[in-house]
Design a binder for these strands. Sequence first.
RNA 1: UGCCCGAUGGUGUAAUUGGCAACACGCUUGAUUUUGAUUCAAGAAAGUCCAGGUUCGAGCCCUGGUCGGGCAACCA
Length: 551
Amino acid sequence: MAEEKSSNFLEEIVENDLKSGKYSGIITRFPPEPNGYLHLGHAKSICLNFGLALKHGGKTNLRFDDTNPITEETEYVESIKNDVKWLGFSWSNEFYASDYFGELYEFAIVLIKKGLAYVDDSSPEEIAFQKGTPVKAGTGNVYRERSVDENLQLFTEMKAGKYKEGEKVLRAKVDLASPNMHMRDPIIYRIKHAHHHRTGGTWCIYPMYDFAHGQSDAIEKVTHSICTLEFIPHRELYDWLITNLGIYPSRQYEFARLNMTYTMMSKRKLLQLVSEGHVKGWDDPRMPTITAVRRRGYTPESIREFCDKIGVAKRENLIDIGLLEFCVREHLNKISLRRMVVTDALKVVITNYPEGKMELLPSENNTEDPNGGIREIPFSRELFIEKDDFMEVPVKKYFRLAPGQMVRLKSAYIIKCEEVIKDSAGNVSELRCTYVPESKSGSDVSGINVKGVIHWVSVPHALEVEVRLYDRLFNMEDLNQAEGDFRTLLNPDSLKVLPKVYAEPSLALAKSADRFQFMRIGYFCVDPDSTPAKRVFNRTVTLRDMWAKKN
RNA sequence: UGCCCGAUGGUGUAAUUGGCAACACGCUUGAUUUUGAUUCAAGAAAGUCCAGGUUCGAGCCCUGGUCGGGCAACCA
């Protein structure tokens, strides 16, 4: 395996640790809380954790950080496992913080016995007040002076269910004057008489994040525990616990979370969008969740490529969603089958083409793929073309159809617009054209050169399908700068449904999850809402379109 | 009135760890093209937040500022 140069600060750390002999192999972990669906921000973390281990011959555990029974559900753990697999990664072990509740409890006992933890009867308000402020030291209370024996007994009683929620907590005795608020005697255990998705009613006391995460890392002998920037202040406590418990010295490193334009990565807010019905569900193709981008037609390869391209650093960032789109286009361009679909139809009658005649014209499935093969498309006297491909009064440099002008019908003939038919309202309703018989694709002897090539569908053979067009979820570029209710910033036009568009007949064979390029329009995939009677396609992303941009 | 992170083209990430700023997206122009796509070629765009200092030499080191972000949930 070729030795690549480290590409970011995390790799540099890992490589140095390996080179110095600090570790002979590394272990990382991806530690989601099963309280929601994974999004692109998690994808970054997944690619980082698994990528680091893959590159250096290490292992990665999938560990569910399930220490808060009231927010966590089995539905979420299943979706998370599914998403990680879809992204193309396999974990060495599937672990749960709740697997360690017994050991964690013993760790708490150790702390109490060392005089480093105490049971506090204060209310949340009292505790908050006694912690002081960042610029004012906290103050102790009478509970802080309880004896080891008393703490031991009280904590045992907490575990036994003797107390109600909120009556007592276990706190680490660290330093109430620390400039780091997280060190001011953090709460490490609280009482919750709640059903846990895995341990059921076994426990009524649950460890806090800070008392579970580092120890779980230590138990699994995680060497590099990477997390996002907001956990930096927690690192001091993470290390304090490892030192005072005398357990495996896992190390925490932090990187900047992913932010993207026109969308948001807050699990809480995404949940709100779902529960309030602003989107149709966690897998609504407009959502930044993994399950949604999957349904939208993104490939795992393109997501991984994206995560690779955005890099990792410790500074705040705002990634242009255009980069994600570039990554899918790049991949889809190589793999998707080309098909012709007319989304906004205008009827064309080829007046010199015999009535009732039909020819099957071959067309490449994918010009990017030499082995892609061809399919045959029926051609007849009556066709649909895109309304946008005709202009009664053409603008300069317009290569498409206009009165008296010619275009090539993709894989078929060159046609010339002879007559424009309008309805009573004055709208163009039909075009009368003639075709050049010698201009047949592949055997063109007409000698005519046309600049424009447009897609088309034969009217009698057209397959009616539904197409769903997605646009950015929000109208604001940087949602982190939003003030007030973020829901007012939702893009009202983020979904446009075209219930009846005309597709070439081969699309009747499209299977769920098949991906296509609708020529000159964009990349589409089959949505699970499809039925045998009606196929539904999601637009993954448009094609790059310099012409549209200019006009 | 504290502590902790951070600051490089529009965006994101690099810079052999002190040697004269690179790559990608985006943008512009041209060529090719039976997708105004793709591909190809060329180009514009930062002198590295500011001020000092060390040095032959600083984006990298030091000092002091400025700006941005984070930290006081019985959330993770």
